[in-house]
């Protein structure tokens, strides 16, 4: 049974600004410990403590099969970090995340694609990263080719693509197969006209097939339409966790 359990999840980021990240500082710190009067000792005295940004603090929630969670909040509230923590990219600093089910992450519009490789090569590589079989990859390649309508560009390096073409390729690839758990950031909703309609249908199909969806977006109408539950994040805390209508009414009133 697919499910997500997040228990008191905390994510902190060390800030390595300029000199604070350098080896000099670290060596200085060590020297200071051994020989407090050595010339390098003064290097550290003023800023011994590492600067830490606490992005997520004590987040807890449970998602069962069939639930579609929307993440809302201002920029910097921790939405993308939470998605990455769910994807297992950032392992918890404290707390626990347990995921059961096949997972697909649509976090970054480039999907980690290599601009020097052709569209086709990128599709095949992506399939291999996810550990798919050759037949599955063949099917996905055909599917993306039909959807993205790149024609001869399929065999050209991705860096030669127009912005629209690379979005079509990335989107087609990202939505080519349905996982049990789908984690999405909002980039895929940016687009235009005809493509958007086509994309919308394809995305809806995918969302229907996925058993659990976690979606981060700024667009309230999409949330009302797709989500069964909304989590409002503010400065790394859960401000509200309820049905879309309840949260969105308060949220929209709050942000004006």
């Amino acid at each position: 049974m697919p499910g997500i359990v997040v228990d008191r999840l905390c994510i902190d980021f060390p800030l390595y600004h300029g000199q604070s990240r350098s080896l000099k500082r670290q060596v200085g710190k060590t020297l200071t410990r051994f020989a407090p009067s050595s010339p390098s000792a003064h290097l550290m005295h003023d800023q011994r403590e590492r600067t830490i940004v606490s992005v997520l603090r004590e987040i807890s929630f449970t998602l069962r099969s069939g639930e579609r969670l929307g993440l809302i909040g201002s920029n910097g509230a921790g939405k993308t970090t939470l998605l990455r923590a769910l994807a297992g990219i950032y392992e918890p600093v404290a707390g626990r995340v347990r995921l059961e089910g096949t997972m697909r992450t649509l976090l970054d519009s480039s999907l980690g694609m290599n601009p020097d490789l052709t569209g086709r090569e990128n599709i095949r590589l992506k399939g291999r990263y996810e550990g798919l079989s050759r037949q599955q990859i063949d099917r996905i390649e055909q599917d993306v080719q039909d959807f993205a309508e790149l024609g001869p560009y399929m065999d050209m390096p991705v860096k030669a693509y127009s912005a629209g073409m690379s979005v079509r390729l990335a989107f087609g690839l990202a939505t080519a197969s349905a996982p049990e758990i789908l984690l999405m950031d909002e980039w895929f909703l940016a687009g235009d006209g005809i493509f958007m309609n086509k994309a919308r249908t394809r995305l809806e199909e995918l969302v229907q097939k996925a058993e659990i969806l976690v979606l981060s977006t700024h667009q309230p109408e999409i949330m009302r339409q797709w989500c069964t539950r909304v989590l409002w994040l503010e400065n790394g805390h859960v401000r509200m966790d309820a049905s879309p209508d309840e949260v969105l009414d308060v949220y929209l009133a709050h942000t004006g």
């Binding site: 923590a85 297992g88 918890p92 995340v97 347990r98």
Partner: peptide, 10 residues
Amino acid sequence: RSPVLVLEPQ
């Protein structure tokens, strides 16, 4: 059958 991923500080 369903892969399980548990993440916590070790």
